[in-house]
Write a protein that binds this DNA or RNA. Structure first.
Lengths: 212, 212
DNA sequence: ATTCTGCACTATTTCTACAAGAGTGCAAAA
DNA sequence: TTTTGCACTCTTGTAGAAATAGTGCAGAAT
């Protein structure tokens, strides 16, 4: 029932327009009054749909403000998100390069960027996260869940990676991600780097730091 | 005013005896009734000191239960803990081996083991952490603080490590530590590995996972 | 001389009940 | 097929009171 954030290319469908209208209103309200400073009734009014319809688009207030879809499950990617299906299939077959870390980086990029269908949304998202540290926790949780499925996928490709190491791997990825988010959120407004860019840089940094 | 957990070797001083009595009582109460199931008045009575004296030994209830001293500052180590002073001095001068990762492992060991002066304490600590997940958060915070000073020390030795990477490094260490704690806590009761052992193993695992 | 203790104090936390808002199920309307 | 209204549950915030955590200090005890 919940839609993917955007179908690529072409004019926006009616549903996509409504989706955008809601997110924009939610972000405006959030920037204006803070996350707890507005109710869903107000958001419904501001975006010109019924309160009930909001939940037709977003499972929660947080999702509306963050403009996120469901957290992707890379093990069983949603067929409505063909780029996800494609990327995971490629990875399963030995990834774009054949070296785990690089392939993982590529896959992470798909994952991280999935939350940012639109440049202008990304920008206000940054402002909101900056103003509402509480939401950082939510972002963390979402990535944590996604990273779990990511590592599950890795373990299919690399069976010698046992569960314990998999868990550790998740934690490392999440640590890099959290750091990337923190950096990205504090970035000056005209810095063009996306969250995925920063994540990739930090992942490389992590590799160097732990290089024997 | 607060003492180091133990002076090495020899018979226990009066202060050390009292320290132990308090910790034992605190752990017993905690295992028996849960962390929130007893008051400091009760702990005072059980360990035969006045309530006020408890705070002479531990800055908080959590510290009493965990049997921890202050979180060590590796940049300015407490002179009353000579092994810390020694280890940091050695590290500053180029560490035991001269390779950052190995020296870091050695230093981390000192840090992690510092919280476990005694085998039997470590064992009940494990049981308590298992039964009271809430305390895991406290343990995390303590290590986070300590890791901060650890990385500050590293940055003195390796000036090309900028602040951003330092922050990332802290996060990675904390991730490894959290994973180690989780593993250690779930360990069967007769498993002789200390937390520091597990931490070291996981740090090595992390290095391999991020090996290009 | 140092550590312990009682006591008076402040600061958090917990509890209760209640209100407000988040989130769901369903059937009729668009 | 999507939207909407409505009735519903569940979680979270609020306010005030009680319990408990934690502090400062001066005198007692060792």
């Amino acid at each position: 029932m919940l839609p993917c954030p955007f179908s690529p290319g072409g004019p926006l469908t009616k549903r996509e327009q409504t989706w955008l209208r809601i997110v924009r209103a939610a972000q405006a309200l959030c920037l204006d009054r803070g996350f707890d400073g507005f109710t869903l009734d107000e958001l419904a009014e501001a975006s010109d749909v019924s309160r009930r319809t909001l939940f037709n688009y977003f499972p929660s207030k947080v999702d509306a403000v963050l403009g996120g879809g469901e957290t992707p499950d890379l093990l069983h990617p949603d067929p409505r998100q063909p780029h996800l299906v494609e990327a995971t299939e490629l990875f399963r077959r030995g990834g774009p390069h054949g070296r785990l870390l690089e392939d993982l980086t590529a896959l992470s990029r798909v994952l991280v960027d999935g939350a940012h269908p639109d440049r202008s949304l990304a920008r206000s998202q940054r402002a909101i996260l900056f103003a509402t540290p509480r939401l950082l926790g939510e972002v963390h949780e979402r990535f944590l869940a996604a990273a779990g499925t990511l590592v599950a996928l890795v373990r299919e490709r690399e069976p010698e990676l046992d569960e314990g190491r998999g868990r550790l791997f998740v934690r490392l990825l999440v640590a890099v991600f959290d750091n990337a988010v923190e950096t990205w959120v504090e970035q000056p407004d005209d810095d063009p780097r996306t969250l995925a860019d920063v994540f990739e840089t930090h992942l490389e940094d992590a590799v160097h730091l732990l290089h024997p």
